[in-house]
Structures are given as C-alpha cells and as structure tokens.
Simulated scan of single mutants.
Amino acid sequence: MISAKVSGSAIASVDLTSEDAVAEIGAACRRDGFFFVLNHGVPTGLVSPAFEETLRFYARPAHEKKNLAADVRSQFLGYRSVGQERSTSHAGGEACEQYRIGRTTGALASGRPADFYHEPFRRCAELFERMVVLGDSLLSACVADLALNGGFFDSCMKSPMHRLGLNYYKVGYGAEIANTVDYAMSPHVDHALFTVLAQDEPGLEVRGADGGWIPVPVIPDAFFVFLGDYLQRWTNGTYRAALHRVGPVPVDRVSIQYKHRPSYSTVVAPLEPFISETDPPRYEPFDTGSQYASLLESLLEGR
C-alpha cells in the first residue's frame, strides 16, 4: 500500500492492479472511509477535457445556465446556481455552482429528455460511463472484502441511479451570497455507496478518525474515493462513511464527483450478516427514492 503524506497524516493509495487491492480497500473502508485509487482503468485523456468542458459551461451567461435548472421535475439533473442549495450547517447556502448528469428512472416530468441536460457535457458523459465501470469494480472489491456472495447486491443495482456532479468554486462566491463561514461546502456525508472524485485544485477536506480535518491533495492520474451513507448503513458501521467539506477557496476550483448509487427506491438498512444480538442495527432504514428526493427538494426549495 502506498500512502500520500498530508499534514502529518497518511491517506492510503490502492493500486487496483495489485493482488492485495481487495484487502487494502477493505482496510481503508473500515479504518478511514477514504483512499486514493491508482491504475484505475479510466483513460487519463478523458479527465482534462471534462474539466475544460465544465469551465466552458460555467463561463456561459446566467440565463443560458438557468435554462437548464435542476428541480424535482428534472429528477435533479441540471444546473444549481451559487447558493441555491441550502447549507445544513449554517444559515447560508453552498458557495459554488453545481451541475448533475446521470441516470434517471425514465421520462422526466419536465417534459424534456435526460439528454437535454446532458447536451453541454458530452465529454463528461464519456467520463461518466467509464466511472460506472470503475464503480462496479470498487463495489465488487468491497463485496469480496466483506466475504459476501459475489452477487450480493445485484438486486439493488438493476437500474442504478449513478450521477456525475460538476462543481465550480469561484473565489468570492461565499461573500457574494453573504455566507458567514469561510468554508465553501458544508460538512456532510454523501447519499451514495461511495464517491469517486477528481479536482483540479486542492480544497476537499475529509474528517479523520481522530476528528481532525485532512486536506486532500491533487495526485496526477489518481482518483480519491470516499464512502457514503449507504455502505455504512448496509454494513451497520463495519465500513465508515467519510464526513467531508470544501474549505476556503484561494483560487478558482472545479471538482468532478462520480456517485455510485443503487436503484431508485432501494431501502438501505443494516443487513443480516452485520447484525446480531450483541450488535443490533445502529441505523434506521433509508429510502433512496422518495425519501432522498424529498431531502433534495427541501435543500433546493425556495432558494
């Protein structure tokens, strides 16, 4: 296992071509809930064009971006303006512009096809499809580490709701929306199995096991993987979800986040292999369909 030295701490880096990859992923999921992944199989030539395409979109006039606005009718595909998403930890909003592409449950209530929202991001859509393959490989490694049947999660992944997020953090956005905190994205845990992230500038911070915030560096040709709520909930805490945030933004920054998610309306609750009389369920069931949609709607409502 390789380690990236960061502020006196170490973030594990796993080479997916290594024969020890499964064990190393399992160890990182239990201990930290995050790790870098190397030799991941995603062509490096897809990443730079995705960043360039994202910057071109955010340079568009405001009215063009708002024509692609995300809401419940678009199944939250599309654009969220700076501060539109309400913070869960302070009185303001998230100090970034956001965009989502990815899978849907079918026809959108907006009357537009999903492809309407994907149109500005053709190169990002290519990257998304390769991220799906990587996500499947990472989930298979987790299943093997947990000594589960190889098809254990198949019934939950028949029509997965994977998404790709494209966030733009511009210097001064926090002041523009009158935030009273210096961080740009509030501390939170993702509603996903895990997130695979690329960033063009540092900014992401993860909460370590000791409670301190660890800055995540930019490592060429590597992705940063951090666990979300669903794997923590399914494994009854055997795997650790990663609390994370984006700190102060000294330079303009783009992050691309691929979220690996189950089928719509999958109910995520501690699974039988991880509960017992001495270790009862620690988490309530969570509906990844209507319950998650209601949560998103509440964060975007009226902003």
Rank of each mutant, 00 (worst) to 15 (best):
residue 3 S to F: 14
residue 5 K to Q: 13
residue 5 K to I: 13
residue 6 V to F: 03
residue 15 D to W: 12
residue 23 A to C: 06
residue 23 A to H: 11
residue 27 A to K: 14
residue 27 A to G: 06
residue 32 D to Y: 12
residue 33 G to H: 12
residue 36 F to E: 02
residue 43 P to Q: 12
residue 46 L to N: 04
residue 47 V to C: 05
residue 47 V to W: 02
residue 49 P to S: 05
residue 57 F to R: 01
residue 59 A to I: 04
residue 59 A to D: 14
residue 65 K to S: 10
residue 66 K to E: 15
residue 67 N to L: 11
residue 68 L to R: 02
residue 70 A to K: 06
residue 74 S to K: 04
residue 74 S to H: 07
residue 75 Q to F: 01
residue 75 Q to P: 00
residue 77 L to F: 07
residue 78 G to L: 07
residue 80 R to N: 14
residue 80 R to K: 15
residue 81 S to F: 14
residue 83 G to R: 07
residue 83 G to L: 03
residue 85 E to N: 09
residue 85 E to P: 08
residue 93 G to F: 03
residue 94 E to N: 15
residue 97 E to P: 13
residue 97 E to Q: 15
residue 102 G to R: 14
residue 102 G to F: 10
residue 105 T to V: 13
residue 109 A to S: 13
residue 111 G to Y: 07
residue 114 A to R: 12
residue 114 A to W: 08
residue 115 D to Y: 06
residue 116 F to K: 01
residue 116 F to A: 06
residue 118 H to G: 02
residue 123 R to P: 00
residue 124 C to D: 04
residue 130 R to W: 11
residue 131 M to L: 08
residue 132 V to G: 06
residue 133 V to W: 06
residue 158 K to I: 11
residue 159 S to G: 07
residue 166 L to F: 09
residue 174 G to N: 14
residue 175 A to F: 00
residue 179 N to I: 00
residue 179 N to C: 05
residue 195 T to A: 05
residue 201 E to F: 01
residue 203 G to F: 02
residue 205 E to S: 04
residue 208 G to C: 08
residue 210 D to G: 03
residue 217 P to D: 05
residue 218 V to C: 11
residue 219 I to L: 07
residue 220 P to A: 05
residue 221 D to F: 07
residue 222 A to L: 07
residue 224 F to Y: 14
residue 227 L to S: 07
residue 227 L to D: 08
residue 227 L to M: 10
residue 230 Y to P: 00
residue 236 N to T: 11
residue 241 A to T: 05
residue 242 A to N: 08
residue 243 L to A: 11
residue 244 H to T: 03
residue 249 V to R: 10
residue 250 P to K: 06
residue 252 D to Q: 00
residue 252 D to I: 00
residue 257 Q to W: 01
residue 258 Y to T: 08
residue 259 K to Y: 13
residue 260 H to C: 05
residue 260 H to P: 00
residue 272 E to A: 14
residue 273 P to I: 03
residue 277 E to L: 12
residue 277 E to F: 10
residue 277 E to H: 13
residue 278 T to I: 14
residue 281 P to S: 07
residue 282 R to C: 02
residue 287 D to L: 03
residue 290 S to D: 13
residue 292 Y to P: 00
residue 297 E to H: 01
residue 301 E to H: 09
residue 303 R to Q: 09
